[in-house]
Design a protein around this nucleic acid. Structure first.
Length: 442
DNA sequence: TCTGGGGTCCTAGGACCC
DNA sequence: TCTGGGGTCCTAGGACCC
């Protein structure tokens, strides 16, 4: 079964505020650069749609339309009521988003005949309405995720669609290719140039042709889905692959100081989420959108995973230095991927121990600093060498970077700790640190 | 007053290693 | 006047989803 709440955010608002019932409601960004997250069915009658710029929705909708920025705590609360309801049906529930989930009914004790699941679905939608104080959902029940999802879209809102086994192709083939999740505007257009509009057209293409048109993964996947062949399981637990935060500014920003402040704020949000989930990330990505909406990303992979907001901010700040911001940025984002539950794996622990042994001659590492073999920073060679002499960057943490300098006669000289944004650690020029990272400078 | 924010997955090229 | 064949890791970008 696939279950999807109808116009979810707007429906919660209309439920909680009786004055909004029967009126067009838009939930989303209400600022100059906002987009629509959810349009109520009344607003859809005027052409308002999800992902449409709010300015466009304002043009289309009449006076009296409510534009709301959203109350996510309230949405999360209603969402968990629904998810709890689904958990009563089966232990196998896959929450896809705040308002959508798959349930493997075969994992519960149910009569799986068409009559049985029809009764089950009808009863579920009724109970959902009661428990949420009047929200409605649509559901599709079928022999696969593909057909269940298509079914849930078919009779929105508050509709139940059961696809009887054996009837899949009859339902699927006349529909446009975009009913298949994963076929968006670009794929639709590409397929159209080959005369493919419906799923039946798609099923007429050979595997070899589809792969040559859409690439291996997408082509092979659609070759199967076009035949309603879909054995994707309901996955109950999924591990996060990345954590990020981004912000579109009310007006484009050119001031470097302001951009750096934004990076720090974004990095703090990411850092807090890393800490609260107990995760560490090794690859840090900066995302920037220019005044003309062109978007670039720059990333840097550390020798060791971190959850330190100041370190994330320092790396992201360095990545920003390689970008041309003279015409202003409309968005900045900071993300962390390569997530792990620990800062370093077993092998790296051994290497760290070796580094710590070496450092004994120079005294213990400063509090809050984690030693590691691979350099997090490449030092600005000229600046660092001039001021401090040759050394290794060998530790970082809590917004600081530790450098072990070579002594006059022994390899292990004094240890000095720098703030992550110390100019001595800054690159001499972007091409310099974009080159092969090295741990040692002379 | 065009175009959010949080994600996932895939591809392709280059570096690097054996 | 020639220069392999895998495999992994990293980076950047694009498509897509809700």
């Amino acid at each position: 079964m696939h279950l999807d709440l109808d116009a979810f955010f707007a429906a919660v608002e209309q439920r909680d505020k009786p004055s909004l019932r029967g009126r067009p409601v838009i939930v989303g960004g209400v600022g100059g650069r906002g987009v629509v997250a959810t349009a109520s069915y009344e607003a859809r009658a005027y052409g308002a749609r999800s992902a449409m710029p709010t300015s466009e929705a304002r043009r289309r909708c009449p006076a009296g339309t409510a534009f709301l920025s959203g109350r996510f705590d309230a949405y999360r609360k209603s969402s968990s009521v629904v998810m709890d309801l689904l958990a009563e049906l089966s232990p196998a529930v896959e929450q896809v988003s705040i308002d959508e989930a798959y349930v493997d009914l075969a994992e519960g004790a149910h009569d799986l005949s068409v009559e049985g699941v029809t009764a089950l679905g009808t009863e579920l939608l009724d109970r959902l309405r009661e428990r949420t104080g009047g929200l409605t959902a649509s559901a599709g029940i079928a022999s696969s995720k593909l057909m269940a999802k298509i079914g849930s879209e078919l009779h929105k809102p508050a509709g139940l669609t059961v696809v009887a086994p054996g009837k899949e192709l009859e339902l699927l083939h006349p529909l446009p290719v975009t009913v298949i999740a994963g076929v968006g505007p670009a794929t639709e257009e590409r397929l159209r140039t080959f005369g493919v509009r419906t799923v039946a057209d798609l099923a007429g293409l050979s595997l070899v042709d589809l792969v040559s048109i859409l690439g291996q993964a997408h082509g092979a996947g659609l070759h199967q889905l076009a035949r309603a062949v879909d054995d994707r399981p309901v996955v109950t637990v999924r591990e996060a692959k990345s954590i990020s935060a981004e912000e579109t500014f009310d007006a484009d920003i050119t001031d470097d100081r302001v951009l750096r402040d934004e990076i720090e704020s974004l990095a703090r949000r990411v850092g807090q989420r890393l800490v609260s989930t107990g995760l560490f990330g090794r690859t840090i990505t900066l995302k920037a959108r220019h005044h003309d909406f062109s978007t670039v990303t720059r990333s840097s992979t550390l020798g060791q995973a971190t959850a330190d907001a100041a370190l994330v901010a320092a790396v992201a700040g360095r990545l920003l230095a390689g970008l041309d911001t003279t015409n202003g940025l409309r968005l900045l984002g900071v993300g962390v991927s390569g997530l792990a539950a620990h800062a370093q794996d077993e092998l790296q622990w051994e290497e760290v121990s070796a580094a710590e042994q070496v450092s004994e001659a120079a005294g213990p590492a400063p509090a809050g600093v984690t030693a590691h073999k691979d350099p997090v920073w490449r030092t600005g060679q000229d600046v660092m060498h001039e001021r401090h002499g040759p050394g290794w960057v060998w530790g970082s943490g809590a917004g600081r970077v530790t450098v072990r300098f070579e002594g006059p006669t022994t390899p292990a000289g004094p240890v000095r700790t720098f703030a992550a944004d110390d100019p001595a650690l800054a690159p001499t020029s972007p091409p310099d640190w974009e080159a092969t990272p090295v741990g040692r400078h002379t």
